[in-house]
Design a protein around this nucleic acid. Sequence first.
DNA 1: TTGTAAGCGTTATCAA
DNA 2: TTGATAACGCTTACAA
Lengths: 348, 348
Amino acid sequence: MNDVATLAGVSLKTVSNVINDYPHVREETRRRVTEAIAALGYRVNTTARNLRRGRTGMIGLAVPELQESYFGELADAVVQVADSRGLSVLIEATRADAAAELAMLANERRSMTDGLLFSPLLIDAEQLRAAVPANPVVLLGERVFGVGLDHASLANIDGTRAATAHLISRGARRVAAVGSPAADDVDHRFRDLAEGDLDRRPITTTSEQLRIEGYRRALAEAGLPYDPDLLLPTGPWRRASGAAAVTDAIDRGLDFDGVVGLNDAVALGAPHALAVRGVDVPGSVQVIGFDDLDESAYATPALTTVHQSRLEVAQVAFELLLDRFAVPTREPRLVVLPFTLVERDSTR
Amino acid sequence: MNDVATLAGVSLKTVSNVINDYPHVREETRRRVTEAIAALGYRVNTTARNLRRGRTGMIGLAVPELQESYFGELADAVVQVADSRGLSVLIEATRADAAAELAMLANERRSMTDGLLFSPLLIDAEQLRAAVPANPVVLLGERVFGVGLDHASLANIDGTRAATAHLISRGARRVAAVGSPAADDVDHRFRDLAEGDLDRRPITTTSEQLRIEGYRRALAEAGLPYDPDLLLPTGPWRRASGAAAVTDAIDRGLDFDGVVGLNDAVALGAPHALAVRGVDVPGSVQVIGFDDLDESAYATPALTTVHQSRLEVAQVAFELLLDRFAVPTREPRLVVLPFTLVERDSTR
DNA sequence: TTGTAAGCGTTATCAA
DNA sequence: TTGATAACGCTTACAA
């Protein structure tokens, strides 16, 4: 920058003015500086600029792993929204490791970012409240509520309720829930709670627990019995574990005519397993998912599912973050995103 | 840091020494500093550190979009490898926009990173040679060769050759190539070129062109005719476009008993389309892909495909980049990654 | 409209 | 083993 100033015969300040499009620069001066910049191939040093400005223009995104389609698509949306606001995204993968999740908040990398979008999977509300994040954090997902942080969450209960109700409306009477908690581990704290009230007090939970609550509500509303045998836990939500759980259920002779996958990944495992065992979808068993991944529309058969826009999640998260930058003291907000049901070929 | 020094009764330099694990610090001093750090909740400012050190510890990853499973998985691998080496990843999405791709190299964000892993899709060798990247670049993928940059590439020709040969060995005689270039647009420059020799001179090409060359070689080696009618172009490689191309082929009455998808995304569209038209896979038509995405193993039927490890790509790319940091003047290298064929249920 | 000079929070040199 | 002091490359009061 010094060289540019010298070559253009102006001061450092003038070069800076030109670079930053400061309006009160004589046209002739601007031209000279621009030429000097080109001649020398000068590029601003963003690190120095950031140091001086006190912000980095980067936000962190911490997710379990990009390899899961859901998080890949989410990251894509976050990058897209960030870009539209002139921000960059520093991605961190916590790899289903609680220590890594906790480290995210205090991380040295935090000081390279202005804020963090954080999707925890394992740490609990207590740990999160105890941690002192270096800068604003917006929570994504369903792990913790009520910890005094801004939060963009999906309509877990209502979405799964709608999914289950859809299967029932199409004639299913014995609906298996794939990816559920273990039958003796279902949490009843949410029985009378509206989705938007989750933030009232500290809660540690899981997507499984919230979604199975939606499943139960749908059954209750339809007057169908809740049969714990129909809960098919999978551990991590993956195609493989979903397929394994359904295969196992078939082989045990479980009687079911519908499958609610608690997310699309496990749901996508079901048709695979059913096909291998010669069960017709949707003729004998209907399948519905939750997320509407890109690939779900091209599964065989195409998966009926609950659509939640990753782009919308990202937009809301950024809104919350930028609001927080502007008014650091404002009350934390929980935003529950809307959903729609997308009918495809895996239901009748 | 000043406050820490004051509280601990030492100088700035000593605090720095402690933070950076400089060995020659008296134990007692180290303790006092550590306590002061804890008491004040001090955290290093990475931006300042980076400015002073002259490096950022971040590398950029520029891909078309994370939403495509392939790039999501690749990004995951890159983040994983970066993490293992204490580096962070700044992700940028070029969104199939040539201007955005070109901007990647000169970008202000470049000065926030020490190097770039770049997967171009649209810009050509000429543009790439003309651009003066701010710091080391490693190319990923198959768009340009021979431009004097380090490069990690897949075995496009040989991989697709193996895929096609596999179908033929399983009895296919009329193999459609989904995701190919248009029949009158097939490039013959590669006819006698070995994969590893691609870097000899500047070449602008596409994955389509290289992979269709592999397809042709396999046909030739099996003594089967090359029938341009069997080329099914799709435009962008997506499940949707793959499905559409195959549906269209069926409806036109095209005679084929095998499908080589030039990547898994288009290949995964094929069983979908075939199922909709009541064609049995692999009974009547066998399908094979290229990439081995996570989801391919759980497609219905599970997709036989050419496996290339994203992790290996990432490792090689980092190797090249770190080597380049160490020896900036070394000759650029092209590394062509190995592949294996994974047999699943979409072939006989 | 442009210039001077201070300072952002570190690390590195050199001396003590 | 520790300290003073000068950078790193930029932005920004403030002055001219």
